[in-house]
Design a protein around this nucleic acid. Structure first.
Lengths: 109, 109
DNA sequence: CCAATATATTGATCACTGTCAATACATCGT
DNA sequence: ACGATGTATTGACAGTGATCAATATATTGG
């Protein structure tokens, strides 16, 4: 029953925070979606219409739509309708937010 | 057939890079593993033995072991055997690496 | 209104994942 | 060597997710 070390502590993220943060990271945890985001970010205008994603990703239109939805619901991208097309762009604040959430870990080194 | 916008571009991460990066982010995309990592990082010694994780996470030992394995294989944590126990600690370089990978997106704003 | 095109949804299928009980393996103390 | 304890693996199950074909919705141009 003797413990091996100081049990635990404080300063740990609670379950709620973890539950909010995880889906955003999970949305990023897919190669297709990573490429999508990089495509949007690298686009000259900063946005790309969905129709231009199918070909380079070699995926069907429904699959592209599905991934865009996942990214959208994670708040990582947003779509703006321009006539018949929808232009998707990265939400930089959201990316920064999730990136900064990874910083405290580093601060403890 | 008329395109809605400038097709695509350059500076996009290739499939290989996306395939390397995605599993690490996917490993972070789970609330249990996020709490685990924060626990390791917040520990006074910077490490925690696996046996001290089951209770606060309210998970069985095999499940804890499973999540530790996922994080280990993603290179996010590492375990050091000390006698009967294994002390797990965050690999800060890895966290920084994945954090920085999210930076270029911001640079384009 | 109608045809064409972009996007979203539905339904189906297959693969993967989180979880636990049961079991095996490893290490220490006696 | 043996029992106790921490860790890993296996097998099973339920839930989720990636993918596509088919279909529906939305918007524009004629």
């Amino acid at each position: 029953m003797d413990n091996c070390c100081t049990p635990l502590f404080a300063g740990v993220i609670d379950e709620e925070e973890a539950t909010e943060m995880a889906p955003v990271l999970a949305a990023l945890g897919d190669p297709v979606r990573l490429r999508m985001i990089s495509m949007l970010a690298a686009a000259p205008e900063g946005s790309v219409c969905g129709c231009d994603l199918e070909e380079p990703l070699e995926l069907s239109q429904p699959t592209v739509s599905h991934h865009l939805k996942v990214l959208r619901e994670a708040g990582l991208i947003e779509g703006e309708r321009r006539g018949r097309w929808i232009h998707y762009s990265v939400v930089p604040e959201r990316v920064t937010e999730i990136r900064d959430a990874l910083s405290p870990v580093r601060a403890l080194v």
